[in-house]
């Protein structure tokens, strides 16, 4: 299943240096389960940070060279349109869900889905091919540790939740071997729709104490389990939620 992972310019919160975003590295990890060589796609002026995505398991990386500060959306959509029209169209596009220090708004996946006319599904923690051809089964993370399993028809855009499995560790050799293909930015035509995000001063809002829609407990409620079983469930819960990271017990 040909998979493309969108990469953004993330910055290390301590040093401010460009680095791959952890969420997108997790997306690469999910993609690697479907595609032997998932491809990365980045539109921007520098590939310094995103190239490390190759070290996390990308098979190759396409960089559309747009001037710094430009909206990446036209470049991305033009590139993907061409890819869909080509002889090996991608089946799945994975993205992170918010900017990590660059100029990202977190809206790119949605705007892209709108422009390309693709379905979008948010907050995946696990993905696998569906039984029917051209479908994908996605486990979606919801509040309070709830999960929802959804089957979508491909091609689709899926964003990844931080509770997805940790990324593949970085390997310098993989990064060095990975191929970076540079593409010139498409000629700027009309400004893309939906880029008219306004700015307004921050207003403090009340903290949300309860979110509707998700039942608490549910599948995670166990009455009077054996101690061994209880311990296993607790460890599995901590593991699933990324609180403990030792791998499955």
């Amino acid at each position: 299943m040909k998979t493309i992972v969108l990469l953004s310019e993330a910055k290390n919160p301590v040093s401010g240096r460009q680095q791959p975003s952890r969420l997108e590295a997790q997306a690469i990890g999910l993609a690697a389960g479907l595609d032997e060589a998932p491809q990365g796609l980045h539109a921007g002026s520098s590939e310094e940070g995103v190239a490390a995505g190759l070290g996390h398991g990308l098979g190759g990386l396409d960089v559309v060279e747009t001037p710094a500060g430009d909206d990446p959306l036209p470049a991305l959509s033009a590139f993907l349109r061409r890819a869909f029209a080509g002889d090996a169209p991608p089946a799945l596009i994975l993205c992170g869900r918010r900017g990590e220090g660059g100029l990202e708004t977190g809206l790119v996946p949605y705007l892209l889905a709108e422009m390309l006319g693709l379905p979008i599904l948010a907050d995946a923690v696990a993905i696998r091919p569906g039984e029917a051809p051209e479908t994908l089964v996605v486990d979606q993370a919801m509040a309070k540790g709830a999960r929802r399993r959804i089957t979508v028809r491909l091609p689709a855009i899926v964003t990844v939740h931080p509770l997805a499995p940790p990324p593949l560790p970085f390997a310098f050799g993989r990064m060095r071997r990975g191929e970076v293909r540079r593409h010139p930015a498409p000629a700027a035509d009309a400004p893309a729709a939906g880029t008219l995000a306004g700015e307004r001063p921050h207003r403090a809002r009340p903290k949300l104490m309860r979110t509707a829609g998700t039942a608490s407990g549910g599948a995670n409620l166990h009455v009077g389990p054996e101690p061994e079983e209880a311990a296993r469930l607790i460890l599995a819960y901590l593991e699933d939620n990324g609180i403990r990271r030792y791998g499955p017990a």
């Binding site: 070290g55 996390h56 398991g57 940790p166 593949l168 560790p169 970085f170 390997a171 310098f172 050799g173 993989r174 990271r245 030792y246 791998g247």
Partner: peptide, 16 residues
Amino acid sequence: TLELGAVPMKAEEPLA
């Protein structure tokens, strides 16, 4: 580490 990225999971954090 360099070719496989197969460091123990806890050692990846200090390396990162």
